[in-house]
Amino acid sequence: MTFAGQHLALAQAYDGITRVVADLDDDALQRPTRCRGWVVVDLLFHLLCDAQRAMVTLASPADGPPDVDDVSYWRSFPPGRDGGDAARHAWWARRSAAAFDRPTAVVRIWADTAPAAVRAAGAADPDGHVATQGHVLRVPHFLATLTTEATIHHLDLVLDLPDAPPPGALAVRVAVAAMDGLLSDDAVRPGSWDDAEYLLKATGREPLTDRDRRELGEAAGWFPLLG
């Protein structure tokens, strides 16, 4: 995908989050998500931190060469690694979101921050490199990681929001490409899965059925990828 395409995918991913939360009231922002222990506003706060990280990262160019791309980046976050750190972050995000007077205050900050992150992405050098999470990536690959995370978290957000819009097609395409890249050599995505089911099952958010395991065979062991 071209740099322009990656930028558009990120814009679509972040706009999709905004469309989910923009009209939610305080009660709706406290509905459950697919992320253990987090309600909608907690997960939105986590995404807000990601958008803020994006702006800092994009404003701090790094020397190359890259040590990961938009696929291998995710292999540095295997399920179960540093479980204590993950639990601490989950608890920190919950307490931080709860510190606001009202959940809708987080929505307002997100609505200001997400478009700014997208603008920073569009102004970045497409041939440049950035450093984040202990890795160096090419700028387009960094944008792809942001899009993948936002798209999967979009699916997390809407667990108990049946009328919420789905993530955009281009953003989903980027996330699906990441999952495809993480597949083991002998794994083939079951043809019965649509993109949303693929993303949810590939990341361990939905369990594999007996039929899934039969279709995957020995390759079922590659699930979940991004738990």
Results as ranks from 00 to 15, higher is better:
84 G>Y: 09
84 G>Q: 12
84 G>S: 10
84 G>H: 11
84 G>F: 11
84 G>N: 12
84 G>I: 08
85 D>G: 15
85 D>M: 10
85 D>V: 14
85 D>F: 10
85 D>E: 14
86 A>W: 10
86 A>R: 15
86 A>H: 13
87 A>T: 15
87 A>S: 13
87 A>H: 13
87 A>M: 13
87 A>F: 13
87 A>Q: 15
87 A>C: 05
87 A>G: 11
87 A>D: 14
88 R>D: 15
88 R>Y: 02
88 R>F: 08
89 H>A: 08
89 H>N: 10
89 H>M: 12
89 H>R: 13
90 A>L: 12
90 A>Q: 11
91 W>F: 07
91 W>G: 04
91 W>C: 02
92 W>E: 08
93 A>W: 06
93 A>I: 09
94 R>K: 14
94 R>Y: 08
94 R>I: 06
94 R>E: 11
95 R>V: 03
95 R>L: 14
95 R>W: 09
96 S>A: 15
96 S>G: 03
97 A>G: 04
97 A>R: 07
97 A>W: 08
97 A>L: 04
98 A>F: 03
98 A>K: 06
98 A>G: 04
98 A>V: 00
98 A>Y: 00
99 A>R: 14
99 A>H: 07
99 A>V: 03
99 A>M: 08
99 A>W: 12
100 F>N: 01
100 F>V: 02
100 F>E: 05
100 F>G: 00
101 D>E: 12
101 D>G: 15
101 D>K: 07
102 R>H: 12
102 R>M: 01
103 P>M: 02
104 T>S: 15
104 T>R: 14
104 T>G: 05
104 T>V: 11
104 T>Q: 11
104 T>L: 04
104 T>E: 05
105 A>Y: 01
105 A>L: 06
105 A>I: 00
105 A>S: 07
106 V>M: 02
106 V>F: 01
107 V>A: 04
107 V>D: 03
107 V>T: 11
107 V>C: 06
108 R>Q: 10
108 R>N: 03
108 R>E: 13
108 R>V: 11
108 R>F: 00
109 I>T: 14
109 I>A: 02
109 I>D: 04
110 W>M: 04
110 W>F: 15
110 W>V: 01
110 W>D: 04
111 A>F: 02
111 A>Y: 02
111 A>Q: 14
112 D>P: 01
112 D>R: 14
113 T>A: 10
113 T>K: 03
113 T>Y: 01
113 T>W: 01
114 A>Q: 07
